[in-house]
Simulated scan of single mutants.
Amino acid sequence: MATGTPVGPAVGPPRLPLVSVRDLSVAYDDGPVVLDGVDLDLFPGEMVALLGSSGSGKSTLMKSLTGFAPITGGSARVVGYDLTNLRRGQLRDVRASVGQVFQQFNLVGRLSVLTNVLTGALHDAGPVNLVGGFSGVHRRRAMELLDRVGIAHKATAQARTLSGGQQQRVAIARALMQRPKLILADEPVASLDPRMSHDVLDLLHEIAREDGIPVLVSLHVMTLALEHSDRIEGMRHGRMVVSAPTARVDTTDLAAIYDDEGADGDVDAA
């Protein structure tokens, strides 16, 4: 298996990963082992595609990075925190530092686009703002983020009136409102058409590069992963079977991920 390395020119001191997972295992009570000995590093400024068939462990790995899946073995350091040895209140800090983008957008449809973005600041809005509304500083930042993702003109529209691609842009702006140190995007384009899929992945890749935020994005479509990522991490049956810069991934690597398990794993599609 190829070993993942930080992307970019070798200038200055080596970068340290913002996520470092070693020999990670996850198992639920009276259930099978879901993750088995997983290693993963995520470095500032890179977008990493997480590939694998349904049931391979992709979503569980993402959940383990925010404490939503039980780590039963190994170690995981995320944005400076040891997830296996957290003190009181630290789990909340970890989750506040991780922006998440989901397949189903998770917006409140009847609320305005601007209000949905503002909810990304709830963790630091304070009790007065939660009662009386968000501050002008928060509102200005939310508008700046909507402008960045290209839909500032929709700020006052109800979220449910937007197209799927527009709603996902709102969700990305909401994640950025947290000032995240890491972004996890779990199948963010699964419900979008091909053009919107490329647009959303281009936006996430741009954020990774310009803001220095690692983006881990799980995908089913190999062609999207190969076009829009700096590195490929491939999972099969709860294990990491491929870890390499995207430019070095070949059909043998892709076969190891999917093992001829259906159309999404068709190596020829790459």
Rank of each mutant, 00 (worst) to 15 (best):
S75Y: 06
V78F: 04
V78T: 08
V78L: 04
V79K: 02
V79T: 13
T84G: 15
T84C: 14
L86N: 02
R87F: 03
R87N: 08
G89P: 05
Q90N: 12
R92A: 14
D93P: 04
D93Q: 14
D93I: 10
A96T: 06
A96F: 05
A96N: 15
G99L: 04
Q100P: 00
Q100I: 11
Q100F: 08
V101D: 02
V101H: 01
F102K: 07
F102L: 09
F105P: 02
F105G: 01
G109R: 10
R110E: 14
R110T: 15
L111Y: 10
T115N: 11
N116E: 11
L118C: 07
L118A: 10
L122S: 13
H123Y: 11
A125E: 13
A125P: 06
L130M: 14
V131D: 08
F134M: 06
G136A: 15
H138I: 01
H138F: 03
R140A: 13
M143C: 12
E144C: 12
L145G: 01
D147V: 03
R148C: 03
R148D: 09
V149I: 06
I151V: 15
A152S: 10
K154D: 08
T156N: 15
A157P: 01
R160Q: 13
T161R: 12
L162D: 05
G164L: 09
Q166N: 11
Q166I: 06
Q167V: 05
Q167Y: 03
Q167N: 06
V170S: 05
A171C: 10
I172C: 09
A173L: 00
A173D: 07
L176S: 03
Q178V: 00
P180L: 09
K181V: 02
I183Q: 14
L184C: 05
A185M: 07
A185V: 00
D186Q: 11
D186Y: 10
E187M: 06
P188N: 11
A190N: 09
A190E: 06
A190R: 05
D193K: 06
R195L: 09
M196N: 14
V200M: 04
L201F: 07
L201G: 01
L201N: 01
D202S: 15
L204W: 03
H205C: 11
H205K: 14
E206I: 07
E206L: 08
E206G: 02
A208M: 13
R209A: 12
R209E: 12
R209D: 12
